[in-house]
């Protein structure tokens, strides 16, 4: 459904690499430093797109989960997409927090402040970390997919509530510079273009990572099927004689809890 052909993925990867390289040159060499914050402000060109990517990833997770739950569009592919996207989202949420922390230290004078957006992002990080933990528990694929999809939507519904509650609570983070309520971008030209380019480059990276993750999941599935076939063949060959096949049944050592975990690994789990 969503898997790209191998050459297309490779081309996307190359394009991403080039875009990220150009971004590095632009952000570090071409764009002038901020008048007030100096070179520290250059972190914006990775911090903001990382945050964008995290939100994009969680949005894709929510949409894929909803599509999985909707009976007419129910396909294992949506579950795979939701899980892959959440993995990337969690990594980039973590990256956003770390990069923000590095930026905050010189500018705000602290690694961490209890500001609304920081707190919201931290909660988001743990929400989806829990979601991934739930995915890692082996179970029948259909059951696990349904469970994960519902958990993803439960988490997604929470995001605006967390956002508003924390906003009421406290705000120190600078207001949105580009998408402010007046739609009057308060950012100098070359900086704005570099930031826009950074967002595009990170979005490409997201596409590439997703494509690779889905490829990997397909390979895992294929291996499990082959191992299962081999185990069945071995048992058939051994006739009625009982062997220690249980020890060789697939699921063991297949990267416990990866997205394509086999049904067999958790067959005993499902009651």
């Amino acid at each position: 459904m969503i898997s790209l052909a191998r050459p297309a993925v490779n081309a996307l990867g190359l394009l991403t690499l080039v875009a990220l390289f150009v971004l590095a040159v632009l952000a570090l060499g071409v764009v002038p430093p901020d008048a007030v914050q100096g070179d520290a402000q250059r972190l914006m060109y990775v911090h903001v797109p990382a945050a964008w990517l995290a939100y994009l990833a969680f949005f894709v997770t929510a949409v894929s989960s909803a599509l999985y739950l909707w009976p007419r569009t129910r396909q294992p592919g949506w579950d795979l997409l939701a899980g892959s996207s959440a993995e990337i989202g969690v990594i980039f949420t973590g990256l956003t927090l770390v990069l923000g922390s590095l930026w905050g230290r010189p500018v705000w004078g602290a690694w961490w402040v209890w500001d609304a957006r920081l707190v919201t992002t931290a909660v988001l990080f743990f929400l989806y970390l829990g979601y991934l933990a739930l995915r890692r528990v082996p179970a029948d694929p259909d059951v696990r997919a349904r469970r994960a999809a519902i958990a993803a939507l439960i988490a997604f519904v929470d995001v605006p509530i967390v956002h508003f509650s924390v906003n009421w609570w406290r705000t120190l983070h600078q207001e949105a510079t580009v998408f402010n309520p007046d739609l009057d971008a308060q950012i100098e030209g070359s900086m704005a273009w570099t930031l826009l380019f950074a967002v595009v480059a990170f979005t490409l990276a997201y596409g590439y990572l997703m494509a690779r993750r889905v490829q990997l999941a397909r390979l895992e599935e294929g291996r499990e099927e082959r191992e299962l076939d081999a185990a069945i063949a071995a048992r058939v060959a051994s006739g009625s004689e009982r062997t220690d096949l249980e020890d060789r049944v697939p699921g063991e050592g297949t990267g416990k809890g990866n997205i394509g975990d086999p049904a067999v690994a958790g067959a005993g789990e499902h009651r």
Binding site: V123, F126, L127, L129, A133, L134, A151, V162, V166
Partner: peptide, 9 residues
């Protein structure tokens, strides 16, 4: 792990 972040608000 699932419950505590959800009930943060």
């Amino acid at each position: 792990l699932l419950l505590l972040p959800i009930v943060a608000p």
